[in-house]
Amino acid sequence: MTPACRVSRESITALTQMLPREKTHGWSHELEVLVTIYWLACGASYRVTADIFHIPLATVCRIIHKVVDEMMSIIHNVIHFPRQEEMEDIGAGKLFPSIILQGICDAKGRFIDVYVGNPGSVHDALVLRRSPIYQQALYPPAGYFLLGDGGYPCLQHPVAVMTPYRQPVASQVEARYNRHHAKGRNIIQRAFGILKTRWRSIFLRALEIRPIFAPKVVAACCILHNICVAAGDIMEEEGGPQMEDGDEHDDAEVDRRDLAGGDVQARLAAQLSAPDELPACLSEHDYI
């Protein structure tokens, strides 16, 4: 059953131990978790899942909704901002079938924030402005910034987001900045790639569920992703990570709360091209 669930036994055990255990009768908690993970991994209908486990159809529906709701109760234990001593490079990005998942991850590809539920037609910049991280200026702390693709505005406040320069770039300085930006942003692209590979039936197929339940299902996949990363249960994305030199930019409306990040972007670009001391991970051999 573990191969069909697309997660290791260690990851399943870790999730089971983290979820509330208030059952005193009925199906075992372990079986309920297994049924839910199988449904997420295979994208099967409730009826097919019921036949696989020999459980009544109505019970399978109840079990899946119950376990997903339990997972929502631990989401902030699994997906959370790092402490100051844990600060690392992070990335921001998006993935959308019919609803948008805006995610931020750390250098290991673990999600530290997710915001799910906007329709796929909503512009990236508007999704950002609707999210708690923007509305409440939750992250990152002063002196740090997020890397976002060209669909996001370049900002200093209320959330610091650095984006690539528009194509065509005006100089080698901007081109070099874009290359380093793409390398850093590759982490979030790979995280989304792994998410789609492991839960392809959720992200690449139409789901036979009510729209109001869909954001919880997507968030549950993100919780499982972090649990798998912590357990060393890594699945390579199909096709391998994609490196991009830059992204298309769409003009977004300016919000009165925005403080543009162009000055910070320019200083970063200049430092990359004429650094006093550059971290080893950013070193190149063609500085001028």
Rank of each mutant, 00 (worst) to 15 (best):
P3H: 15
A4L: 09
A4R: 15
C5A: 09
S11F: 01
T13C: 06
A14I: 01
K23G: 09
H25F: 03
H25N: 10
W27Q: 07
I37E: 06
W39C: 09
L40P: 04
C42W: 14
G43H: 01
S45I: 00
S45R: 11
Y46P: 03
Y46L: 08
R47Y: 03
V48C: 02
A50Q: 00
D51Q: 02
D51H: 02
I55M: 09
I55P: 01
T59F: 10
V60F: 00
V60H: 02
R62E: 12
R62I: 05
R62Y: 10
I63W: 02
I64F: 07
V67M: 06
V67E: 11
M72H: 00
I75H: 03
N77K: 08
V78Y: 09
E86N: 09
D89A: 11
I90D: 07
G91H: 05
A92N: 13
F96M: 11
F96H: 11
I100E: 03
I100Q: 03
Q102V: 04
K108L: 10
D113C: 02
V116F: 01
V116A: 03
G117F: 06
N118L: 08
S131H: 13
I133F: 14
A137R: 05
L138W: 15
Y139R: 01
P141Y: 09
G143I: 06
G143W: 14
Y144N: 14
Y144V: 03
L147R: 07
L147S: 08
G148Y: 04
D149T: 01
Y152G: 15
Y152L: 14
M162R: 12
T163I: 09
Q167Y: 08
Q167R: 14
V169D: 11
A170G: 02
A170T: 04
V173A: 15
E174N: 11
R176H: 13
H181K: 02
G184Q: 10
G184W: 10
G184K: 12
G184M: 12
R185S: 05
N186D: 05
T197W: 12
S201G: 03
F203W: 07
I212H: 13
I212F: 10
F213H: 08
V217W: 01
C222E: 03
I227Q: 04
A231F: 00
A231Q: 09
A231Y: 00
D233A: 05
E244V: 11
D247A: 06
E248T: 05
H249F: 05
D251L: 12
V254R: 14
V254L: 11
R257Q: 06
D258W: 08
D258G: 05
A266T: 14
A266L: 14
L268A: 14
P275S: 14
C281E: 13
C281F: 12
